[in-house]
Design a protein around this nucleic acid. Structure first.
Lengths: 222, 222, 222, 222
DNA sequence: TATGAATGAGGTTTCATTCAT
DNA sequence: AATGAATGAAACCTCATTCAT
């Protein structure tokens, strides 16, 4: 979503484009393929254990090409993380910003969406692994994700909860200062998948149910 | 043995040990120092980016010594994780196994203890980072921690909750199948510390309060 | 292909090859150069005392290149010995297989040829040194040379001697079971060169004469 | 033989020897054990591939002890070769120096003795391997063995042959300038054992027979 | 005198990066 | 723009040697 596939919308025009444009487009495609391959490798092995040659092989290009598109392994890594912004957050903000639905309804849908986009999304798991593993290496990227994602999520959640309190639909409480506590089980599910998926798979649907049950009861007006 | 115990004045202390014993003890001390240093380095940089020489330097020994104590970098890494079993879990099991206190009381103490031992414990953060980062490299270690820690924690929590339901102190619900959902905020706090501690420190006490508030209300009999 | 063949004047030579072919050929040349350098180093210092870096330096390439062409020092060593099959033996077999000349004549020429190819050939000395020094390390290579060289030499010599007996040109005797005894002085000459060449050089021509004198008289019909 | 076991001749006196003498003798025993172990290791793996620790282990002493008795690995190696003078050559010189027996008789016995002492003696094989493998490393040792053994053998053989010619028992010939040619088959047998003993064992007795047959016929007066 | 832990130089190997083609 | 051989720094590991005990 962060990269709308504009080019592929005009299939019939390709032949009419001048070669410079086509070349540019090829370039972008190659770059994407390399980034995609790099993400897979970095996610699988971590930064240091990833070999540029493996990235190239996975991308189906010659060994030296990634260094041609990206100045260095480090630059490639940063580009990978920068391109990997998760599902468009602003859409969520719009969707949940204003509504007449009950707070419980909104929360239900919000949590369900998070599960769909994060818990059930292997790419999100790998991104989290990369952030945790390589975070100390590159604080600016941690910060980037914080600003882009965490902060906005907390703000959105906070406003949603605040509205609920105002409307008398949920009880006030200390969670208001830490709205993220509401989403904690989702994070747990992601981590569970990351660590134990193969040996002890988690029934995400059931877990989501328990999550919502706990949270909605926990917030309910006594 | 090769050295007569001339200093037999202080029966119960080190001076009475013969040189073989002393040497053995020194060996163990050195081994621990190396493991400690290795843990710091691995936690800070991850497995692949850690250099044996840095481990040695941090332990204050010569470059080759870690390889004298541990056959290889890999063996050192595994030894590090194996030695790092977290605070004694069986003590917890004993403490919360049987009691007359109310379920709310028990939960409050249990959660508080987890915060003390995990959330406020940098070593636990780093261990989690290592498990997440290097888990795919060594599934047997992930499994080891699952069996040693996760499984037992879930069992303990499950029995605690089950008792509460039986005693009519908390309501039944789907959380019973996923008792870990109760601890999710603690995990979130650990991860928060791991990722954002420097730029956006978390008030753990406040967060713990929100955690307990949510959970106790969420479990309360309506 | 990437480069237009500007020098099309000499149809049959390198200039007409496309770059892929040229590159392949360069690769082969480099490989040979590395093998040649490796042989020199191994022969001079033995396997263990040879440093890969010295092989590279002698080949005039960077330190890492030998490991690019050969997976390991061991693989390089084996490749060296495998490439070093001595002068074509089948040619000898053909030459001495059938003939009307007297056995004495044939033996004279055969022995002379062996001196030319082995005794006077420093490369053969070094190969022998390597086989003796590293044979226990790699029995399959000893076996390879046995089958490729020793066995065939003995067979050829045996048939030559057998024919001589049949034709009544030489006397029968226990040497028939050990034809190699006939060539023993040549081996002695090789070893002499290997060990004492610098301080006590051997007059190979004179030694050859003594060799033939002894053998031809030793085989002569009384 | 190079080291007469004088000490073990007086078993009953050991207790009466003063401790300094006993210590000295222990020292010598230890040194011999280390040399023996070193010889085995060097012969098996060559100089460079031999580890001091393995020498110590084989000698049954602590890792550091060989370095205590011998200044360095190199010094140990040289000491090993220096101690390994083969069976007493002067005895042979005495035995074959003057005699009334026929030259054929003398040669037969001489060759047989050489087989007994060299061809059938694994220690001699290994010594040869070491000389060939490490000769270039230490020319002075090659020279030492040349003077101690080869030169004297050639001289002895030469005088034996000369006497035979004088007495009309053998024909004159160019072999007189290279008496070693007479012993070449024995050398071949040693090398054969060194290289092919395991896969293609040599019947030394039969080979000796062929050797003598060839040589005695080759030298016989026509 | 003997031990074996400790040292650190030096070897093999890996791999990010460069560059001629 | 793309290829892949070539480079060389740097990592892991070995092991001869030292030295406190």
């Amino acid at each position: 979503m962060s990269k709308p596939p504009l080019e592929t919308d005009q299939p019939a025009n390709a032949a009419t484009q001048d070669s410079a444009t086509r070349r540019r487009r090829d370039r972008d495609v190659r770059e994407s393929e390399i980034l995609e391959a790099a993400f897979s490798e970095f996610a699988a092995h971590g930064y240091a254990a990833t070999r540029m040659e493996d990235v190239a092989r996975r991308a189906g290009v010659a060994k030296g090409l990634p260094n041609f598109y990206f100045a260095s392994k480090d630059a490639l890594f940063k580009a990978v993380l920068r391109r990997l912004i998760l599902p468009d957050w602003s859409a969520l903000e719009a969707r949940f910003g204003q509504s007449d639905r009950t707070t419980a309804d909104l929360l239900r849908e919000f949590v369900a969406l998070i599960y769909e986009r994060l818990v059930d999304n292997p790419r999100a798991h790998q991104l989290l692994r990369l952030l945790i593993a390589e975070g100390p290496r590159m604080p600016e990227l941690t910060e980037f994700y914080y600003a882009e994602f965490i902060e906005r999520a907390i703000a959105l959640l906070g406003s949603l909860l605040g509205r609920g309190v105002e409307r008398g639909e949920i009880r006030p409480g200390p969670y208001a200062r830490y709205p993220q506590v509401i989403m904690a089980p989702a994070l747990m599910a992601v981590l569970w998948n990351l660590l134990f998926a193969t040996e002890h798979p988690l029934d995400c649907a059931g877990f989501l149910e328990a999550h919502l049950d706990l949270v909605l009861n926990g917030l309910a007006v006594p």
